[in-house]
């Protein structure tokens, strides 16, 4: 036993438990909180793997940005005090069978794939500096595509969520 194994067991257990709770909880805000814990667990896993920059990015973008947005959405669309929309029994059955079958297939594949890759000698991954250089070198095209995509998202979200003033003015006149 070494520390990596213990840490992985604790973090992975917590992450998996919260991920399961996301799917099983009916209350949408609690679901969001469990998703928050899953995301934090995943970012801890990145730190454990030595990918510090990716872990910190996960924290700042997902936890600080996306999750706040999601909870904001939940608050804006909640009609009753705490929003619950029930799911019928057969849907649970179908969904459960589907998920378990997929999990079985994926585990089968990963058992075959994972055994060929033992623990590497180095304990570090390239950090912010090399990643930045790579983004401006070999990976310039995906970087540019992502930035254009973000611009499109910015305009699109602002257009979709804008306050609809025109109809009000028409009503007044």
């Amino acid at each position: 036993m070494n520390l990596d194994v213990i840490l992985f067991a604790v973090i992975a257990g917590a992450t998996a438990l919260s991920a399961l709770s996301v799917a099983l909880t009916r209350d949408i805000v609690r679901s969001a909180v469990w998703l928050l814990f899953t995301l934090i667990g995943v970012s801890t896993l990145y730190f454990l793997l030595g990918a510090e920059f990716v872990g910190a990015t996960q924290l700042i973008v997902y936890v600080g940005g996306t999750m706040v947005l999601v909870v904001f959405g939940v608050m804006l669309t909640a009609q009753q005090q705490f929003l619950k929309i029930k799911t019928a029994g057969p849907e649970w059955l179908v969904g459960g069978i589907l998920a378990i079958a997929l999990f079985a297939v994926l585990v089968h594949v990963s058992l075959g794939f994972g055994e060929n890759h033992p623990k590497p000698a180095t304990n570090t991954l390239p950090s912010a500096g090399p990643l930045g250089t790579a983004f401006l070198g070999n990976y310039l095209l995906p970087f540019e595509i992502v930035s254009v995509h973000l611009l499109v998202v910015l305009i699109g979200a602002a257009y979709l969520a804008r306050a609809k003033r025109r109809s009000k003015e028409e009503g007044r006149s």
Partner: peptide, 20 residues
């Protein structure tokens, strides 16, 4: 030793939960 397989299995579990 901690290998690649546990990570892949965890990822598979997260994926299945997401699908569910």
């Amino acid at each position: 030793e901690l290998g690649l397989t546990p990570y892949l299995i965890l990822a598979a579990f997260l994926f299945s939960c997401g699908l569910l």
